[in-house]
Computed example of a mutant assay.
Amino acid sequence: MTEKSTATPFVRTWEILPSRGYETAWIDLGEANLSARGRAVGLAPEPYWVAYELETGPGFVTRRMAVTIETATAVRTLDLRRDADGRWTADGRPRPELAGALDCDLGLSPLTNTMPVLRHGLHRGPGEGPRRFTMAWVSVPELTVRSPVQTYTHLARAEHGARIRVESGTFRSDLEVDGHGLVLDYPQLATALTR
């Protein structure tokens, strides 16, 4: 007898503003985890396409993100993993500077903002105020990995969910998420085309 999945499937398509492109993600959202696969195309800084797969464990903590990017001159891949002890690897090589990170953040992808929102219920209410996160941030189209700190703050309830401020360094944007924690509008980055 196989175990019945309790995940809810979603499909979300966004217009990605900086790349002048689009992303579609097929998402299976459970009570405490999600898995997704996505495709994106962009024109800036050069024409490229992206394919990714994302898997989280309990608490929406990243387990693995595999990414492939193709441009006219190169194909790049990245296999980013976090084990149960919190150790990160990129293509099998240890990345100790990512210690403490629970989330991956794929550049130009609004999907990866979902995990911290869901983990702390920021789509439902303010909780305990601003939350600071170390992220395993992946640049697109280069696929380099860095560890910036991002702050998420619930600002208000909104018509379809909530408004949340995301900050990192000098960057700041107030995004709108739906009742499932998925991005509807991310000024400077993305706008959902399907709800």
Score class of each variant (00 low, 15 high):
124 R>W: 02
123 H>C: 08
28 D>L: 14
148 P>K: 10
50 V>K: 11
32 A>G: 12
19 S>N: 04
154 H>K: 09
35 S>Q: 15
145 V>E: 05
54 L>M: 05
114 T>A: 14
136 A>R: 08
33 N>C: 09
21 G>P: 11
28 D>I: 04
94 P>H: 04
22 Y>A: 14
131 R>I: 12
149 V>A: 06
138 V>P: 02
149 V>P: 05
141 P>K: 03
38 G>D: 07
154 H>Y: 10
37 R>G: 12
79 D>S: 03
31 E>M: 04
43 L>F: 13
141 P>H: 10
23 E>L: 08
106 L>F: 04
41 V>T: 15
108 L>G: 04
91 D>Y: 07
84 A>E: 15
97 E>W: 04
144 T>M: 09
79 D>Q: 07
90 A>S: 14
102 L>G: 15
59 G>Q: 04
148 P>M: 03
36 A>C: 12
122 L>P: 09
134 T>A: 15
146 R>C: 08
153 T>P: 01
61 V>K: 07
121 G>A: 08
62 T>W: 08
88 W>P: 11
142 E>R: 08
135 M>A: 09
121 G>Q: 04
102 L>V: 05
81 R>N: 08
122 L>W: 11
63 R>T: 01
62 T>F: 00
35 S>E: 15
150 Q>S: 09
79 D>Y: 12
147 S>P: 13
37 R>S: 15
54 L>R: 01
143 L>R: 06
107 G>A: 01
82 R>P: 10
57 G>F: 08
130 P>K: 13
23 E>T: 02
106 L>P: 05
148 P>A: 02
133 F>V: 09
20 R>Q: 14
90 A>H: 08
148 P>Y: 05
72 A>K: 10
157 R>C: 03
94 P>R: 05
58 P>L: 06
40 A>Q: 14
128 E>N: 12
34 L>F: 13
50 V>Y: 02
26 W>L: 15
73 T>Y: 03
25 A>D: 15
22 Y>V: 15
